[in-house]
Write a protein that binds this DNA or RNA. Structure first.
Length: 874
RNA sequence: GCCCCUGUGGCGGAAUUGGUAGACGCGCUCGACUCAAAAUCGAGUGCCGCAAGGCGUGCUGGUUCGACUCCGGCCAGGGGCACCA
């Protein structure tokens, strides 16, 4: 007996079990078919799935199921980004060991994911904290070392002097450690770096080839790499300071050299340090600059401050002109030479600084058509184009010409027997520091020996495993504190030596996991060459926009580093990228001002708009702004609860249908109920269709009447539109077309109940019903299976081919054309799709509304955009 | 501070990328079924106007026969900024 209601609670586990038994989502089972690799950014195992995950993985699953139906050998794997700080925080708070905590979280989240019915190849599951995984990561690190891609140098970190630990930027709040509250200091540590800057140019130019990446992500990466062409210019000190007799600056605005008012050094500039060694006031100033975090945001939003060193430099083109030298908090040692010349009139930061210290501003670039005499600079610097003024031999030149002229002169004039300057391409991109003074990460496979230096751990000794007997009750790195772990013999000379106790940045883990998925259980190497060649690059990668720069750039770098150290990877890891939006929700505040969870709130809609009340007690609740779901604001919706009360298909359908995938989706209970109703409707209409449809497998009849033809046209147009929308990842539009299809089918069914159904119409209904099940299968796979079986098919819809639209049935014979008069729509005409211009012209000009709108004025122009629009210009 | 994105009915959004603005859904209104409710089904729903018609895509100016779409200026919200992942 066919139940009236679709029972998801029974059906979903039923179909999931059958899919699993038949192993239909295994990759690599269709060797002769073209491959398709779809990957969603793997999750951090926080312990709970959130709606953002549901959305991310639902999108990937639609593509995976769609491509499988189109005959591809699909790789759709899942794993865990399992190293990271939260596990250590949990250990410090609850005493649970990071490994135990992490693996328990993985188990919980795997179970949650499985209830969603995703078409994943679970046999390829990996976790980055598994020694089988990080063994190869250590191997890669050593391969990179041998290939010259690894470097060791000093860099600055946020140091918490109380907790004796390095802090992440997010752990520094208002210049203080998040837990200790102590003032954070900047400290220099010797750290391992991956030399991503060797690939600056390549990473930049190859962005052009990433045609299936969002333009905004490419733009962000382009800006991040930050290629700029400028000059290095050497300024002689008016009188030497110790051994130092010059300062070298980098500038992209050499044209403004005659507008220079000062030089500024980074607090960490060698000369600044040298002066500070003799000048306690400057030392104190530099110390002050070192407080307040290492992030660019912290440095650039801090109030501009400087310290006049008393030194002066000589202008390169005027021996009688000297400039003051400041140390300033907004100059970064990491960029250029750590020193700049300041031109207040044409750089906002320089202007702010000059205004504060009374250094003045001379305009040297005057925009075209403006009288130089009228040009004054108060609070806003001018950084546009123009002609040079007040600049001696540069006067009258364009900015570009002046840049060239200055570079030429600097190159050909000498200072201390060397050219005074040189053209230079500079990148903002810095090398990637991967050392972390933490336990829960991949150990860096190096042994420090007094006589041999930093020695790689021999390959046969990999993996260097994390010791399990560690505690988190004291400050500092547990690896460093461990009584025995770090003490080993030098692999080269045998002398007692010390293991590297730093672990790797977790971004390293996620920089190559996509490659490991191609061959996840390979014991000998990260992945075999044939596996890499078969599957890479990832055809469609899906994840959050928050990874637009770092993760994606590191992965692109890693692929090149792997290539150059002998691994058979593609240079670009992700051929197609899609960045999906977040799941957001209203916030609620109770009478006491505390955040309330949506589950504790009842919404009423009436004349006065939407109002909210506390379920417990009925007190009025304030509806706050819509924000990203977060624990702190309590505006989360638990996927488990949604799956339990509405089913996985409802959750999937809602997150896919309610917003375009690249934008945020607002979770609403009304919307979820709408999705739920549609799933019931699919089941109901399939039953009704089944009663009038020809048996499964019936061939198309020779003669097709008008009613059947109309229905077939609707079916085929829907197939064409849904297919195109899925290809373009417009899932919301694909679902809208399916809903329209169901509306049309309802109308068609209403029309036949009295009449009786001929063979041709029965066939058309069969085709419609089968198509409906297949079109919905990627989005709502469980109910689609139930409908497919209900329609009398023996196999699974998950294994059925994607329907193909017949172009003859998609084409329109009559089209409607809007007729505009002077750009305003006045009428609409219905003409054959191949009507000639003369016919359309007569038809358009004959319309009453058109005649009225023309008001008897003569026709000036008749514009016909074929199959689109008519515009009558009078 | 710098870089990037977004803004369309009461709400989420659609618009073949310069060619009928508001598809589809939510909500709401009215009706059918019901003792009643739920569920379901049908009709309506941008704003003003009795209508003819007018106005409408954050604001403002421009290009065009024609602008949600392109360009300039502004406003608001969001993401990233190198040790959160």
């Amino acid at each position: 007996m066919r139940p009236d209601r679709y029972n998801f609670a029974e059906a979903e586990p039923h179909w999931q079990k059958i899919w699993e038994e038949k192993q239909i989502f295994r990759a690599g089972t269709r060797a002769s078919a073209p491959k398709y690799y779809v990957l969603e950014m793997f999750p951090y195992p926080s312990g709970r799935l959130h709606m953002g995950h549901v959305r991310n993985y639902s999108m990937g699953d639609v593509i995976a199921r769609f491509m499988r139906a189109r005959g591809y050998d699909v790789l759709h794997p899942m794993g865990w980004d399992a190293f990271g700080l939260p596990a250590e925080n949990a250990a410090a708070q609850t005493g649970a060991h990071p490994a135990k905590w992490t693996y328990a979280n993985i188990a919980a989240m795997r179970a949650q994911l499985k209830t969603l019915g995703l078409s994943l190849d679970w046999s390829r599951e990996i976790a980055t904290c598994d020694p089988e995984y990080y063994k190869h990561q250590q191997g890669l690190f050593l391969d990179f070392l041998r290939a010259g891609i690894v470097d060791r140098k000093k860099s600055k970190v946020n140091w918490d002097p109380v907790d004796m630990t390095v802090l992440a930027n997010e752990q520094v709040i208002d210049g203080r450690g998040w837990r200790s509250g102590a003032l954070v200091e900047q400290r220099e540590l010797t750290q391992w770096f991956l030399r991503i800057t060797c690939y600056s140019e390549e990473l930049l130019t190859a962005l052009e080839t990433l045609e299936r990446w969002p333009e905004k992500v490419r733009l962000m990466q382009r800006n991040w790499i930050g290629r700029s062409e400028g000059v290095l210019a050497r300024f002689a000190l008016a009188s030497p300071f110790g051994d130092t007799r010059e300062i070298e600056v980098f500038t992209t605005r050499a044209d403004t050299l005659f507008g220079a008012k000062f030089l500024a050094l980074a607090p960490d500039h060698p000369l600044a340090k040298a002066i500070a060694a003799q000048n306690p006031d400057l030392a104190a100033f530099c110390e002050d600059c070192r407080r307040g975090g290492t992030s660019a945001e912290a440095i650039e939003t801090a109030e501009k401050q400087g310290f006049d060193t008393g030194l002066r430099v000589v202008h390169p083109f005027d021996p009688d002109w000297t400039l003051p030298v400041y140390v300033a908090n907004f100059i970064l040692m990491d960029y250029g030479t750590g020193a700049i010349f300041g031109c207040p009139a044409h750089d906002q930061r320089d202007l702010d600084f000059a205004n504060k210290y009374g250094l003045g501003a001379t305009v040297v670039v005057c925009p075209e058509g403006v009288n130089p005499a009228d040009l004054t600079i108060a609070d806003a610097a001018f950084d546009g184009e123009g002609r040079l003024i007040n600049s001696q031999f540069l006067d009258g030149m364009t900015v570009e010409q002046a840049k060239n002229e200055v570079a030429n002169r600097l190159e050909t004039t000498a200072l201390f027997n060397a050219p005074q300057g040189a053209r230079k391409v500079n990148f903002k991109l810095r090398d990637w520091g991967v050392s972390r003074q933490r336990y829960w990460g991949c150990p860096i496979p190096i042994i420090h020996c007094e006589s041999c230096g930093a020695v790689p751990v021999p390959n046969e000794d990999l993996p260097v495993k994390l010791p399990e007997d560690v505690t988190f009750d004291q400050p500092g790195n547990p690896l460093d504190r461990h009584p025995t772990w770090k003490h080993v013999a030098c692999p080269s000379c045998g002398a007692p030596s010390r293991r590297e106790t730093d672990t790797m940045d977790t971004f390293v883990d996620s920089s190559w996991y996509y490659a490991r998925f191609t061959d996840p259980h390979n014991m000998a190497e990260p992945a075999s060459a044939p596996a890499l060649q078969r599957w890479l690059p990832v055809d469609q990668y899906i994840g959050g926009i928050e990874h637009a720069i770092l993760h994606l750039l590191y992965s692109r770098f890693f692929a090149r580093a792997m290539r150059d150290s002998g691994h058979a990877t593609a240079a670009e890891p992700f051929a197609g990228l899609f960045t999906q939006g977040m799941v957001v929700h209203e916030t609620y505040k109770g009478p006491d001002g505390a955040w309330l969870s949506p589950a504790a709130v009842r919404i009423e809609t009436g004349d006065g708009g939407r109002r909210a009340f506390q379920i417990d007690g009925g007190a009025a609740v304030e509806i706050g702004p819509i924000e990203k779901m977060s624990k702190s604001k309590k505006n989360t919706v638990d996927p488990d609860e949604i799956v339990a009360s509405y089913g996985a298909d409802t959750a999937r359908l809602f997150v896919l249908s309610d917003s375009p995938p690249d934008r945020d989706v607002i979770w609403s209970d009304e919307g979820a109920q709408g999705a739920w109703r549609f799933i019931q409707r699919l089941w109901r209409i399939t039953g009704e269709l089944g009663r009038v449809a020809a048996p499964a497998g019936t061939l198309a009849p020779d003669a097709v009447g008008p009613q059947a033809l109309a229905l077939r046209q609707v079916t085929h147009r829907t197939i064409a539109q849904v297919s195109e929308n899925i290809e373009r990842l417009r899932f919301n539009s694909a679902i809208a077309r399916i809903r329209e299809f169901v509306n049309d089918l309802t109308t068609a069914l209403d029309a036949v109940t009295e009449a009786g159904v001929n063979a041709d119409l029965a066939y058309a209904f069969r085709e419609a019903a089968d198509s409906l099940a297949r079109l919905t299968a990627p989005m709502t796979p469980h109910v689609a299976e139930a409908c497919w079986a209900d329609l009398g098919h023996d196999g699974l819809v998950a294994e059925a081919d994607w329907p193909v639209a017949d172009p003859a049935l998609v084409a329109q014979d009559m089209i409607s054309l809007p007729v505009q008069v002077n750009g305003k729509k006045r009428a609409e005409i219905l003409v054959p799709h191949d009507a000639d211009e003369e016919t359309i012209r007569k038809e358009s000009l004959g319309q009453d509304a058109v005649v009225r709108a023309m008001e008897g004025k003569p026709l000036k122009k008749f514009i016909l955009v074929p199959k689109r629009i008519v515009n009558v210009v009078v």
